[in-house]
Design a protein around this nucleic acid. Structure first.
Lengths: 182, 182
DNA sequence: AGGGCTATGTAGCAGTCGCTACAAGAGGAA
DNA sequence: TTCCTCTTGTAGCGACTGCTACATAGCCCT
């Protein structure tokens, strides 16, 4: 039995919680270790170095996100794209989702800069979200795959605009695009 | 004559160039100073502390972005929303724009986390881009204001998906939304 | 019982962080 | 000249960074 992997799996949830609260950018070993109830010495022991720790942590967070989407999946489908979008935006404004969102932009920034692990985690989360969105598309939709990608693009744009204080711009855009009821 | 402000204005372009290349997250005083041909000591002297330096730098970068958009403004308008979007996406794939984009996600991440100066700079850049986009809307468009916001949301979504390696998702989404020619 | 392997604590390394104390040169005002 | 203010260089502070050397405790295997 490899005890190293066991220890990693014990550590990762606490590390993820710390990162969700304090961000990825300023995450340094000693605060991370304190949050996990151990020492920087042991983090290096279990993960080898900080880079692999962050990479594995990003993978774990992507899996967390995936699980959250699965848990959110209801068995009733919306009947229109508008309703589908409305449901998703409502889910995104859940306070529990806010911490995820703030962290998300850290991950996007890392992915854009090419940091190791960031792009893979971000891509995985987007792939999962896309699959979930496809499953949420209305039953009679003429083009569920394309429609899901279309909505996805609008959702991510809305999230970005909201992150910088332009939620009004996004809302009016969705309205003009016929994606929101007045 | 206030030499302090003069010095700031001399320093800011070099600081902006360094940040465009190396990012905002890891920007520390000594490398910044070296890039500007001075010392950390002088950066603190001229800006007071790092926080105001970053805030002023973000403002300067927002103004740079604004100027770049003005310079990009042609006098011929596109005739359809599709053409408008195509032009903007082409401008965004300009290599000179790539450094801006990578930095942009740093700014969005800072804005989402509420760091001082980030949200203001990001909001200003979005406001400017929105105004530019409104001016770019086709002459006969039935709803230029709403259309610009709609396109804006799609553009930002596309940029985000591209940053994490999902440019295909975005392209197929635009296609399904009728915003791209096959 | 003893030997080796795994896990952990203590202490510390060299480097960087933002920032500051102090001195000194430059230039204008008296 | 003598002072005063503005600007700058040198040196360094205490805190923090990722990481490591060393010792030690507990465990399984023989």
């Amino acid at each position: 039995m490899p005890p190293v992997q066991l220890s990693r799996e014990i550590l990762l949830p606490a590390l993820a919680a710390h990162v969700l609260e304090h961000g990825l950018g300023g995450a340094s070993l000693r605060p991370l270790a304190k949050a996990a109830g151990t020492s920087d010495r042991m983090l290096i022991y279990h993960f080898g170095n900080k880079e692999t720790l962050i990479t594995e942590l990003l993978g774990y967070i992507a899996a967390m996100y995936s699980g959250a989407l699965d848990a959110m999946l209801g068995d009733d489908r919306p009947t229109t794209r508008q309703e589908c979008l409305a449901r998703i935006m409502a889910a995104g404004s859940d306070p529990a989702m806010q911490a995820f969102l703030v962290l998300w932009w850290d991950i996007v920034a890392g992915a854009a800069r090419g940091l190791p692990g960031y792009r893979a985690a971000a891509g995985a989360m987007m792939t999962k979200q896309l699959a979930w969105l496809e499953g949420q598309m209305p039953a009679g939709d003429p083009d569920p795959a394309g429609g899901a990608r279309y909505l996805m693009t609008l959702i991510e744009g809305t999230l970005m605009l909201s992150a910088v204080g332009h939620e009004d711009t996004a809302r009016e855009g969705l309205l003009a695009g016929g994606l929101l009821a007045t």
